[in-house]
Design a protein around this nucleic acid. Structure first.
Length: 473
RNA sequence: GUGGGUGUAGCUCAAUUGGUUAGAGCACUGGGUUGUGGUCCCAGAGGUUGCCGGUUCAAGCCCGGUCACUCACCCCA
């Protein structure tokens, strides 16, 4: 063995130095060495790694993902949202027109490429726009309004990855089209809020109104005027923002900017009477529903299509600064028109699944909880060829009866199977050996106490039901 | 896109001032006689030290580049 290691190192060195010239001899050396990795090296077999910002969702994370999906599904259907699934690929122009040129999402982050036939396509960076497109394409203005959708799926943004931010990420979202009622805005906030509550996550709600496009234009003029007068006191970043995206200055966390921001004009004072009245109504509904919220005059969203109400859900515990926004949304009364439909108001939200799961994971780890979600609680062990053959049928029968069984028929030794049962933390192990096959019986072993009982195979299901029922009590 | 930190086994980490064949724990596989898990004992497998190049008699360690991860900014979910 040790000799092999020396050989290998030498071979690797040789290969490195002579990788081009030595192709054939290298292969020979590799096969003589009998070492697979050397052989691979000689043949130039590459391994592949994940693309930047992309992740595998592994079986050990399954419970979290399923729980989030199920909760999303339950709450959406409870509030009468219909499931909508749109393609990941859309005409790139759809996103460019509605999200807005000049936004980072479009200019710097969207995955776009030419299809084989020359069409410019984009991978969706979010789904609200697609939902609006779908609403228009299928003439949904002819069905009773408002139309309510929920969706769940992957989105793509070519951003630089960091904590809670990936290039492929998942969103759960709800959208409504065709309703301009304050109660709708409030309902969406309630749905999002309850989604988190059902998952055991405490979230805060930030809310603001950015009025109509005209309101905002008038306000921005006022804001820029004010900030210019204080320009010399602003931080470097803010000086840049002042030109590029003045609304963003409001979000600055630099201490030196705070006193200036406290005195800054607030958008809420520049709203038209209509927008203001609408916003007040939304807040009243929230009060009525007992949803705690924080008025945040500095909340402005990054996408062009928002009007009036904007809100976001943020995690209450945890470090400041880090990706604390778990989701956000707002009203987008101009969007449908922008994608070519009749003027139709709309409102919705999207929630980041990865961020939500990271909060859930942190919580379960802190409390030392184990995600348990009706996992398989029974292991089936078999011994001997006859028993193995019989096992297939018994396992299949149990499955049909709705009892899930974990097993590994490939393993021969009972000991090995018991180990597996233990590692999977099952509560009961069924043991079928030669003797049991002949008697038509089977052993049920209680893994905690070690007590075993022999039961008739025909009564197995009945026995298990009894045991599993006791558990739930 | 800008800046900081980090790359050694599947995971968590070792490896004296550069010096023989890069170690350990956990996890994994097999065994501790014939049909029983958790503990224990023994054995095994698993590494082009991220990659490329340079300095040197000699590089996991030093230098340059590159890639990846990570944190912050920008922006957002």
């Amino acid at each position: 063995m040790k000799k092999n290691k020396i050989n290998k190192k030498k071979i690797v060195k040789q290969l490195k130095k002579n990788k081009i010239i030595l192709k054939e001899p290298a292969e020979k050396v590799a096969s003589e060495s009998g070492d697979e990795s050397v052989a691979k090296l000689a043949k130039g077999v590459k391994t592949f790694s994940l693309l930047r910002g992309m992740r595998d969702i592994l079986p050990k994370e399954e419970l979290y993902w399923k729980k989030v999906y199920r909760t999303a599904e339950e709450i959406s259907t409870a509030y009468n949202f219909g499931y909508l699934e749109t393609p990941i690929l859309e005409d790139a122009g759809l996103f460019i027109r509605s999200l807005g040129r000049g936004t980072d999402v479009v200019d710097k982050e969207m995955y776009t490429f030419e299809d084989r036939d020359g069409t410019k396509v984009g991978m969706r960076p979010e789904a609200t726009v697609s939902a609006a497109r779908s609403y228009v394409n299928h003439g949904m203005h002819t069905v009773p309004q408002p139309v309510k959708f929920w969706y769940y799926g992957p989105m793509f943004r070519h951003d630089k990855p960091q904590a809670g931010r990936y290039r492929e990420f998942h969103q759960f979202g709800c959208e409504t089209f065709g309703g301009h009622e304050a109660v709708l805005d409030a309902e969406l906030i309630v749905v999002g809020y309850n989604f988190f509550r059902d998952l055991g996550i405490n979230v805060g709600v930030h809310i603001n109104s950015i009025g109509t496009t005209e309101d905002r234009q008038r306000y921005v003029v006022e804001l820029v005027g004010y900030l210019r007068s204080k320009r010399s006191y602003l931080c470097e970043d803010c000086k840049k923002r002042l030109v590029k995206n003045p609304l963003r200055v409001l979000d600055c966390k630099e201490e030196q900017c705070q006193p200036i921001l406290d005195e800054a004009p607030q958008i809420i004072d520049w709203l038209s009477d209509q927008s203001r009245a609408y916003f007040m109504k939304v807040l009243e509904y929230l009060d009525e529903l007992d949803i705690p919220y924080v008025l945040k005059p500095t909340l402005v969203r990054g996408l062009d299509y928002y009007t009036d109400t904007v809100f976001e859900f943020y995690k209450e515990e945890g470090e400041e600064g880090a990706q604390s926004a778990l989701g956000g949304g707002g009203r987008y009364d101009l969007l449908v028109e922008q994608v070519g439909g009749l003027p139709t108001p709309g409102c919705g939200f999207a929630i980041g699944v990865e961020r939500t799961i990271s909060v859930m994971r942190k919580q379960t780890e802190e409390k030392g909880l184990i995600m348990d979600d009706g996992r398989t609680k029974i292991f089936f062990a078999q011994l001997g060829e006859q028993a193995r053959r019989k096992s297939l049928l018994l396992i299949e029968n149990l499955r049909r009866e709705g009892i899930k069984v974990y097993h590994n028929l490939g393993k021969a030794s009972l000991k090995g199977q018991m180990e597996l049962a233990d590692k999977n933390k099952v509560l009961y192990t069924l043991i079928l050996g030669q003797k049991e096959v002949q008697d038509g019986t089977i052993i049920i072993r209680d893994m905690e106490s070690g007590i075993q009982e022999i039961v008739d195979q025909k009564k197995l299901k009945q026995q298990l039901d009894k045991k599993l029922l006791n558990l739930t009590k």
